[in-house]
Simulated scan of single mutants.
Amino acid sequence: MKETSVRDHKRLLLIDDDPNLILLVKDYLEFRGYEVITAENGREALEVLELDIPDMIICDVMMPEMDGYALVQHVREDARTNWIPVLFLSAKGQSQDRVKGLNTGADVYMVKPFEPEELVAQVESSLKQVSRINLRPSKGSETGPKLHVPPEVELTPTELKVVQYVARGLANREIAEQMKVSQRTIESHVSNMLGKTGLHNRTELARWAIESEMA
């Protein structure tokens, strides 16, 4: 029972344009207790992500319509999905290929052909890491005074997006680049949110977003 605890109710999104590999990996992961949803390319995967947020993404790199690199960029830029661990599967095993994959935003890079047991081990390791990160907000609340924010505070959709980036640790300049607006505009949004919430700085704003499960 202890061995399967990490797998309980975990949903994995598997993306590959090779139907044989999809069948093989899906069967193996389901046999090990995971729920697996599939897509044939990055474009189809984005459609899946509009409706369903998996616990992890396992993705081929070279695919038609949208490759793994482009997909991961979309995943990392969306506040709904940027926390999801991504494992790249690729036939390209050169050092520069691995570096590019990890720099693009993948958490793990595995080269085909691979041992199914190693894939499961990497999946479990990534899911455990996410679980550890998710424990941080409750611990973080002990490191500072309790935040007192009026319960009726309402953020605009743009403010919500900005505060999610703040919670991820991005500077105003980086947020401006992501949202394609001026840094002054981002500073104005942050200032407005501090006024609405009565908080004192960006650190408290980030804590509030995390503790309120906005991030």
Rank of each mutant, 00 (worst) to 15 (best):
D67P: 05
G68L: 07
A70E: 15
A70G: 01
Q73L: 09
H74I: 00
R76I: 06
R76C: 08
R76A: 06
D78W: 03
R80I: 02
R80L: 11
T81Q: 04
T81D: 05
N82A: 13
N82P: 00
N82E: 12
W83C: 01
P85I: 11
L87S: 02
L87T: 14
L87K: 03
L87N: 05
F88E: 01
L89F: 11
L89H: 07
S95Y: 05
Q96E: 15
Q96Y: 12
R98C: 10
R98P: 00
V99K: 12
V99I: 15
K100M: 10
K100T: 02
L102Y: 06
T104D: 07
G105T: 06
D107W: 04
V108Y: 09
Y109C: 05
Y109P: 01
Y109K: 04
V111D: 02
K112N: 04
P113K: 10
F114R: 07
E115C: 06
E115Y: 11
E117L: 12
E117F: 05
L119D: 09
L119C: 10
L119Y: 11
A121V: 06
A121S: 12
Q122R: 15
Q122V: 02
V123T: 12
V123W: 08
V123F: 08
E124P: 01
S125W: 02
S125M: 13
S126M: 14
L127A: 05
L127S: 05
Q129L: 13
Q129G: 01
V130C: 02
V130S: 09
V130D: 02
L135Q: 15
L135W: 03
P137K: 04
P137E: 02
S138Y: 12
S141Y: 06
S141M: 15
S141I: 06
T143E: 14
G144P: 00
K146C: 01
K146S: 11
L147P: 11
L147R: 07
H148S: 10
P151C: 07
E152P: 00
E152Y: 10
E154A: 07
L155H: 10
L155K: 07
T156P: 06
T156K: 11
K161F: 01
K161A: 09
K161R: 14
V163R: 01
V163P: 05
Q164R: 15
Y165A: 03
V166W: 04
R168V: 01
G169K: 05
L170C: 02
A171F: 13
N172D: 13
N172L: 02
N172G: 12
R173D: 09
E174W: 04
I175V: 13
Q178A: 14
K180Q: 15
K180Y: 04
K180W: 01
V181E: 12
V181A: 03
Q183D: 11
T185G: 00
T185D: 05
I186F: 07
I186W: 05
E187T: 09
S188H: 11
S188V: 01
H189V: 00
H189W: 13
